[in-house]
Design a protein around this nucleic acid. Structure first.
Lengths: 203, 203
DNA sequence: AATTATCGCAACTTCAAGTTGCGATATCGT
DNA sequence: ACGATATCGCAACTTGAAGTTGCGATAATT
């Protein structure tokens, strides 16, 4: 009985359970959706008992936000190939990659199957989107500096134009989304930008 | 010629109740979302008792699909002003109008807060989208015929490019959406189309 | 191998979802 | 206007999933 034991003996198997439940929660989210997401099913899929989940997380909301938070840190590399065309293509392709990957699927499911009503999720959506936008802006400003795009081209506007068709196909049109989609988006965006249609939105 | 009496005499007050419940269901859907949509709350909002709703609809799913089906017949007028520019602007504006109006809000909420897992809803989404697309195609083909757009411009591709930024702002970026958004979308689409970036998608 | 935190299990509680029988009421035909 | 009848309101009931608790079993650290 030492007055200061740094902590109890290190926990042990907790980490494995935590990871398994996280994975199960995201998986359930993807194929059942938020509305039909029950703690019991998550536990079942994780090969864990219901009570274990309830002891570790207050409810399904905190479980979900926790699980998503762990995976929302997906960094997107900002390309710098020296030419807008290849930069935009790379950017579009990496958007497609992340959105169609397992993590992206989970995130989309969370945001578009009801969890959007949780303030944490709604805020996270805007934050992640804005963050990527601002981090990708150098691609545009560099292109303008190189003279490849007209002066005054608005980075945010351009990047939204690039991302929009991908999201549309994924969420609404239910079209297949692959590299071709990405390349077409890049091509369209580039054409619009060169024509000066993506200059600052002011009036 | 009625071989058999269609039914007992015409129902009576059923119609009013039906309409009230439909409206209440859509309203609840918009501010609570699908996940939190309970039959009891809908009944309460409709000024009707729970049992009345249950007697008329099997469960909340059939109630929702029924309510939405009634309002999904919103026809969009296809403009024909004689010039692509004004046509596209009108089209984009009417998309914004319908999506930001009360019915559009309900439809979006249904499709993006969990009801998407109901096969009827998912199919309806694709169907409605495709239907509008095909009905708006003449706008593009006429423009090509007039020589305003390059030969081989793909109508579907162009219209998706037009709609995409509006949906993106509405669903993901959470930006304000108004006529300005519509006009910018039309402008961008036109620029891309004139540059030949929207020709047939074949490789 | 001993210790201790965590997990599995089953029984329990709680609460919303959905059901039923009956009396009240509004609509339609005459 | 008045009676016939289908629908609605109401309250009590049934059902089932969500979440809880105590105890024995298990796995990891020293």
């Amino acid at each position: 009985m030492q007055p200061e034991q740094p902590s109890a003996r290190t926990v042990g198997r907790g980490a494995k359970v935590r990871a398994a439940v996280h994975a199960a929660a995201l998986a359930e989210l993807v194929d059942k959706g938020y509305a039909a997401l029950s703690v019991e099913n998550v536990a079942l899929r994780a090969g864990v008992h219901k009570t274990t989940v309830y002891r570790r997380w207050k409810d399904r909301e905190s479980l979900l936000t926790d699980a998503l938070g762990e995976h929302l840190a997906m960094d997107i590399p900002v390309p710098d190939t020296g030419a807008v065309e290849t930069d935009l293509r790379a950017l579009a392709r990496s958007i497609v990659q992340t959105l169609t990957g397992p993590t992206g699927q989970a995130v989309l499911a969370a945001m578009f199957t009801g969890a959007a009503h949780l303030p944490e999720i709604a805020e996270a959506r805007r934050h992640v989107f804005d963050d990527r936008l601002t981090r990708a802006e150098p691609v545009v400003t560099r292109a303008v500096r190189r003279g490849e795009l007209p002066e005054g081209t608005d980075p945010a506007e351009l990047l939204k134009t690039l991302a929009a068709p991908i999201y549309l196909r994924l969420l609404i049109a239910a079209d297949p989304v692959d590299e071709t989609t990405a390349d077409r988006a890049a091509h369209i965006t580039l054409a619009a930008a060169r024509a000066g249609a993506l200059r600052a939105p002011a009036s």
